[in-house]
Design a protein around this nucleic acid. Structure first.
Lengths: 195, 195
DNA sequence: ACCGTTGTTATACACGTGTAAAACAATTTG
DNA sequence: CAAATTGTTTTACACGTGTATAACAACGGT
């Protein structure tokens, strides 16, 4: 039959489009509802390009996880870099960035929650998740130590758990509380963790 | 071909077996990996019984969510009922029960996390999740109020978010911290929330 | 022992899935 | 303008999916 007309593009353009489409589909349909044909349609290409550029849907999802983690990490780093000079200001900036757009956008939260779901049963996704979580905790430990916190390992675990729990709740039902309320709770936990 | 021999059973026995099998499959394979054939095999019956007793896999998953929520709620109620008479003892018992078997068993946590994943894209599951979460927060608000906490709505949100975040982390990687450490963090948050 | 009831299995069906690769079209080069 | 390159679409394939239901087997009653 007649083929759809198309423009030829470089590899990076196609890969980025497929990654963005995957993030969107994960957010909208969850880990169990995503498919090759759905992602290709969202990216405006045909399904063959998934295998062509990524070797398959699993590798595309893994690449999307990396890209999303890099994006969130860059946003958090920028927030800390832009903060006031005191250690507490930097830690507060880190926390606040979690509950401000673009990180607090429901679509980004939903994509991230989909990765959590996949990590439970997909070893490759679990490995990415472990390395992302370890890097996050290391960064938070460093920020907490600068503030004089004791037992920084457990404090970092406690802080990231609260942030993840608030993210999870907002991705499932954004009406439960506002991003500002989430930020206020996290500040209060910081007060308790630092002493 | 020759049929598999079987014993006839009452409806309740079959439904309970299918629900238990569903929880197990959700824990092991996640929300995206479960199937009718898999659940039926785990229950020791044939796939036709899923449609026969539940109308389909979606209704079976919803029934499993209800059953799991009821089980967790009963465990938490029992912990509070068995606690010392002071409001703080009751609240601490509530928190501690979250991080002690059977609630802290990885399989139960993984099943629960699978429901979170399904809630993101399945309206029926989302509705069950909203009602379970609302009931949990109401109970926690009541326990917090008895301890003299102010702004109990936000405090309840903060406490359940930390518990959920710690559950999530342990379901994804139980080696990150112990259940005892999780309980200690939650107690520390209680101290901060009650003042 | 036979019959009726009904719990249950096995099968068929239509559909969606991910992947592979032949074939084609866009674009560049000579 | 023709040929070469290569990005991309389309198609085919094997497989797994959920559901419906005919047929059968377990069991109880007479």
């Amino acid at each position: 039959m007649a083929r759809a007309p198309f423009h030829r593009e470089g590899e990076a353009v196609r890969r980025d489009a497929l990654i963005a489409a995957t993030a969107q589909c994960l957010a909208t349909h969850g880990a169990g509802g995503i498919s090759v044909r759905m992602v290709a349609a969202a990216a405006g290409v045909s399904a063959g390009l998934v295998t062509h550029y990524f070797g398959g849907i699993d590798d595309l999802i893994a690449a999307t996880y990396h890209a999303t983690g890099d994006r969130i990490g860059a946003l958090l780093d920028a927030a800390v870099a832009a903060a006031g000079p005191t250690p507490r200001a930097r830690l507060s900036a880190y926390v606040e960035a979690n509950f401000r757009p673009p990180i607090s956008d429901p679509e980004l939260l939903a994509t991230w929650a989909a990765f959590w779901a996949l990590a439970g049963s997909n070893p490759a996704i679990a490995a990415i998740r472990d390395s992302v979580a370890a890097a996050t905790r290391a960064q938070v430990e460093s920020l907490l130590a600068a503030c004089g916190a004791r037992e920084t390992r457990l404090a970092a675990i406690g802080l990231t758990a609260l942030i993840d729990g608030l993210w999870l709740e907002r991705s499932l039902n954004p009406a439960t509380f506002s991003a500002a309320e989430a930020g206020a709770l996290a500040e209060r936990w910081l007060d308790a963790l630092i002493g």
